[in-house]
Design a binder for these strands. Structure first.
Lengths: 280, 280
DNA sequence: TGTGCTTACGCTGCTCGTAACAATG
DNA sequence: CATTGTTACGAGCAGCGTAAGCACA
């Protein structure tokens, strides 16, 4: 029976030129390598080396053997990697979302339904999400619209309404509602990584300068200490409370309202049944 | 360290459904398989099976592992086969010839020059020979003509002259020479497997019925006991003696004379140097 | 009760490292 | 005489098969 170890020894010998040197790098004694190479020749039924009394080197067949050995070793380490990768996807519930609010919501639900699984979630562009759903990077994705596809099922599960968050002394602070256009042209505070909302803001408020914040705590400090307008939503206020130095004014535009759909592959319907049941 | 044996066990388990059955076919005890599969999971770092108290079966990752294992096992047996094949070509001097005489001659020379090698020789059609030289099935080939090619060298090394061998009471027995055409239309004895001479006979003597003999001793018995004309050559007479109940008459046609060339790949020039030196 | 998987246990023999040896430059 | 490869030898332990145990049908 051929042994993997022999192939590793062979390649090590090839790379380090002498048995002694290879033995050092393999952290074994040198006689082990002598025997290993003898055994390999025996088991292959061919001569792999030219020997003189104190020198051993590859012959043509030996070089050929090294090539094969490298390939087999590669395949084997690859097998291990791929199995581990696949195993992890089996034990991971992976969510891809187009926006923060539904992402937070679904992640909570998922960790309740699958306490034994690792919950992984991220916000990405919608084309990336769809690709990721198809290639199974994501177990489910969250999208702001419906779909009719033979492989994909979609279920609406939450709504989100955006509001302007204005300091009390803002000229519009007493209005009962506002449009995106009315507010366009000022400076506004904005969180980064808000998914598809970002494109919406860029599109509907082209004259506004958005002061983008990476850090959530810095963002809230600025809300409290500055008079810069910002956005919030029913979901976020429910989660984090209403800022007490701010007037919250609903946005009338249709774009400021989103219905989020949970998309998943129909082939996964059975696995997701209980999760979806609790969701709606 | 992953063991090759574990992969074989894995595939055997897959093919025989239960560990017990697989163990029987592998000629090992069943606990060995239990441990082997446990170890494989451990070394891969993933779960490969679903277990109940007295039943073990593959999970998704397990099936995936089987696919990888099959491939690695294939590659490994392939490695062994290819190495052995290559090793044999290194220890074999392989001659492909278009005719028997030069084949006999060269085989003798080869076994003198390379007593440690296996000498292999065969007579084949010329297109097969050329292909075989290029793909290294043959170390050298024997052809009845020269070549000018960037990869192939050719050296003339022997001539062969054909004769008619006629019984003394044959009408032409007293002629000092004959043409192929003069003799066409009779029945003639002919050995099989005479390479390119065969095409020559068919072409130049289309009305002759050739009584083809597989067996050389039968052929010589018929020469002695029948009055059927046949061919011989200077080389064959030198080798096996001149038949004593026959008149040997030279054939005047150019086709009855051949100059044989030894073709070999230029890349082998060095290896063949001493062989070629003794040849010419 | 028979089948199938796992665990326990004792023994065999394989493989390791050390050491001695031989050759080479 | 330092380096390299092979062979000898003794020790330790890895892996084998047997046997016992447990679950299931």
């Amino acid at each position: 029976m051929i042994e993997f170890e022999q192939l590793i020894h062979l390649v090590a010998f090839y790379e380090h030129q002498t048995l002694s040197e290879a033995a050092k790098h393999l952290h074994i004694s040198q006689p082990v390598l002598t025997r290993s190479m003898q055994k390999l020749e025996e088991v292959m039924g061919v001569t792999l080396f030219q020997r003189t009394k104190n020198r051993i080197s590859f012959n043509e067949t030996g070089f050929m053997a090294v090539e094969y050995a490298k390939r087999i070793i590669n395949d084997t380490t690859d097998m291990k990697k791929q199995l581990q990768l696949f195993d992890r996807t089996l034990h991971t519930f992976s969510i891809g979302s187009c926006a923060p609010a539904p992402n937070i919501h679904l992640s909570q639900r998922a960790s309740q339904t699958y306490p034994e699984k690792t919950i992984q979630s991220e916000i990405k562009d919608m084309d990336v999400l769809i690709q990721g759903l198809k290639d199974k990077t994501y177990t489910i994705i969250i999208m702001p619209y419906d779909i009719d596809d033979e492989n994909i099922e979609s279920v609406p599960f939450m709504e989100e309404q955006l509001y302007f968050s204005l300091p009390f002394d803002h000229p519009y602070a007493n209005k009962s509602s506002l449009s995106l256009k009315e507010m366009d042209g000022q400076k506004m505070l904005l969180m980064s990584n808000i998914g598809f909302w970002n494109q919406m803001h860029q599109r509907t408020m082209p004259h506004t300068k958005f002061l983008i914040q990476q850090d959530r705590s810095v963002f809230y400090d600025l809300i409290e200490l500055s008079t810069l307008p910002s956005f919030t939503s029913d979901f976020m206020m429910n989660l984090e409370g209403k800022p007490n130095n701010r007037k919250i004014i609903p946005i009338v535009d249709e774009e400021a309202h989103a219905t989020f759909y949970c998309w998943y592959l129909k082939e996964n319907e059975n696995n997701l049944k209980s999760f979806l049941y609790h969701l709606v």
